[in-house]
Amino acid sequence: MAAEGHSSIDALSQFALEPALGAIGHSVNFTQANLMMVAASVLVLALLWIGMRPRAMVPGRLQAAAEMCYETVMSMCTEQIGHEGKKFFPIVFCLFFFILFGNFIGVFPYFFTFTSHIAVTLALSSFVFILVTAVALERHGLHFFSYFVPQGIPAVLAPLMVLIEVISYLSRIISLSVRLFANMMAGHVMLEVFGSFVVMLGGAGALYLFPAGLSLVVNVALIGFELLVATLQAYVFAILTCIYLHDAVHLH
């Protein structure tokens, strides 16, 4: 119904960037996205710092949560990358929880989701790409380029295969960033659309109360779904980073 001419559902303005922190933020182009990044970082650090303050032998709830976060990412690193994975643990941890907390914060109404910006996710995926390539070059030197030549292929096919391998290697930047960005954006567009339905139908008279209620129910379900997507996408980003790092360390 919103697609008809005078659309009053503005599902995209929620992604518009605005300066945050008043005049100072305005002068340095500090946006509300950056404010949410700070919030996510502070929450991650607070969870670790406050959670681990008791240093208890038998952990309490918050400490158990902090330890679980640590051990989840640690096992992800060691299982995917191997025993060298410990070296990459801090960066994978930061990526995972930066994205996870960013996604979670975004689910709250009136809070901005910085992972719904392609520029941000592209920066993150480019960082991962550069890191992975740097690790591979540092580990294997020029031998790294043999990664693009699959073993046991006919010489005739080699140029084609190398081309395909290079493209697939480069496309990691795009797939990693677009996956996260598109998932977060789509979810928030859906939330906005069904939220608008609730308001518009609810205000349109007694006849529309039922569909309005239905939209509300859908929105509640969508928020649960968004929590799932938020976790899943952060996990996918982290696990793919680990897999890429594994390739970089072991070259297949």
Partner: peptide, 24 residues
């Protein structure tokens, strides 16, 4: 936002890898 994001992420990385994670 990306520039600020990079700065924030680097600060997060330094604080996490130097202080928070070793504590855990």
């Amino acid at each position: 936002q990306v520039v600020w994001g990079a700065i924030i992420f680097i600060v997060l990385y330094i604080l996490a890898s130097r202080f928070a994670l070793p504590k855990v």
